[in-house]
């Protein structure tokens, strides 16, 4: 996912209200690249899920929100990373309804369906990195 980056914002994810802040920044960016209302909502919801996973499962981390361009279209790219326990079985974590806690187990699998590009890298003991992109149509 190498797209020309126009603007970058870094944010910490340490407490509950950071998740709300991430959501707000993502919404602002989505509006700036003129995503449709449906796509804005989808991206914001995906960001909300991933930021909360970073906080709850990853023990906190960082988000990077970028305005990107691939020559044809503009989009928003959001990266979430933590140095938490990592995901031992990625395929399993992406199964609808699978959760190691008491959630619905839809955050990861659901956000994959909400965005155009989804990249998940994780190493047990090292941490997790999830990158998503949503393009303006």
């Amino acid at each position: 996912m190498n797209h020309a980056v126009r603007e970058t914002q870094q944010m910490d994810i340490r407490i509950d209200s950071d998740v709300v802040r991430v959501r707000q920044v993502v919404r602002e960016c989505a509006q700036r690249v003129k995503l449709s209302l449906v796509d804005q909502t989808k991206l914001v919801t995906a960001a909300s899920e991933l930021a909360r996973n970073t906080l709850l499962h990853g023990g906190g981390g960082h988000a990077t929100i970028e305005l990107v361009h691939d020559g044809r279209r503009s989009g928003v790219k959001a990266t979430f990373r933590d140095e938490g326990p990592g995901i031992p079985d990625i395929a399993l974590a992406l199964v609808d309804g699978w959760t190691s806690g008491s959630g619905l187990g839809l955050g990861l699998s659901g956000s994959r369906r909400l965005v155009d590009e989804f990249d998940l890298a994780s190493q047990p003991g090292k941490g997790t990195n999830v990158t998503v992109v949503k393009w303006a149509r």
Binding site: K42, L106, G110
Partner: peptide, 13 residues
């Protein structure tokens, strides 16, 4: 609202 309904469906809730 429509955008929320579509998102809920895509999430799988």
């Amino acid at each position: 609202r429509p955008q929320i309904a579509q998102t809920i469906v895509a999430l799988g809730i």
